Amino acid sequence: MVTINPYLNFPGNSLEAFTFYKSVFGGEFAVVMSFGDMGSENVAEEDKDKLMHIALPIGKGNILMATDTVGEMGMGYKEGNNFHLSLNVESKEEGDTVYNALSAGGITTVPMAISAWGSYFGMLVDKFGISWMVSFDENRG
């Protein structure tokens, strides 16, 4: 089985974002580590409370991970960075639930509906600027 573990970059609010994602998907954080926890002298004092790594297991074998971009890491940060996270759900009902939760405070780009290729599908950008695709294909097994 192939698993995809997306790693997201945030401009200092990864804990806020991951608290939101935890409210959507449930579960517990596997890791929450700040830059200060690492004891690095190369990190500015104002960045020591920002997260170096956070991980939230989601479903069967998937882990959503992130970091706060600090110092020179943050120079190229652009909200969204032109990617989508694709979620394949197990039912239309689960699709609606996840889609509605993720889109709260965000932007609906494609409402959940039967797509031209036959999947129940929707797209959105959440309130943190992350692009998502939600899909259910009842023929997939």
Rank of each mutant, 00 (worst) to 15 (best):
G59L: 09
E90F: 09
P11H: 07
T19N: 10
F121H: 13
G36W: 14
E46S: 12
K50W: 09
L64A: 05
G80Q: 12
F25Q: 08
E94T: 14
K127I: 01
H53G: 12
S86N: 15
K78V: 14
N139E: 14
E90G: 13
S23F: 00
P11V: 01
F20R: 04
A44Q: 01
F29L: 06
N81T: 09
V134H: 06
F128W: 09
K60W: 05
N13I: 08
D47Y: 11
M38S: 12
E90M: 12
G106N: 03
D126E: 05
G122I: 02
G141P: 04
K22M: 05
V70I: 13
V24L: 01
G12C: 04
L124Y: 04
F128T: 05
S135Y: 01
I58D: 06
F121T: 03
D68E: 10
I63A: 13
E94A: 14
V43E: 01
D37C: 13
A116P: 01
G118M: 02
D126H: 02
Y120G: 08
I130H: 08
A104K: 10
G26S: 06
M73Y: 00
N100I: 03
F136K: 07
G12K: 12
T19H: 04
G59E: 12
F29V: 05
Y21T: 07
E16L: 07
S91P: 11
N13Q: 09
K60G: 11
G59R: 08
E90I: 09
F35N: 04
M133R: 08
N62K: 08
N62M: 13
M73T: 00
T108W: 01
V24C: 01
I130G: 03
P57A: 12
G80N: 10
E93Y: 07
G74Y: 01
S34W: 14
Y21P: 02
S40W: 00
W132R: 09
S40M: 04
L51T: 10
S119N: 13
R140L: 14
V70Y: 05
D126C: 03
G36K: 11
Y77G: 02
G39H: 08
I54G: 12
V134I: 15
A30V: 03
S119F: 03
S131M: 05
S86H: 13
F29H: 09
E90Q: 15
S135P: 11
F18H: 13
M112A: 03
A17S: 07
N42A: 00
N100G: 07
E16A: 14
F136R: 06
P111L: 00
G129F: 07
W117E: 06
N13L: 07
D137V: 06
F136Q: 10
N100F: 02
S115W: 07
M52V: 09
H84G: 12
M75V: 00
L87E: 10
T19E: 12
G105V: 01
N82V: 07
E138P: 14
K127G: 03
S86Q: 13
Y120E: 06
A17I: 04
G122H: 08
T67N: 15
G61P: 11
F121P: 02
L51N: 10
F20C: 02
Y21R: 11
V98D: 03
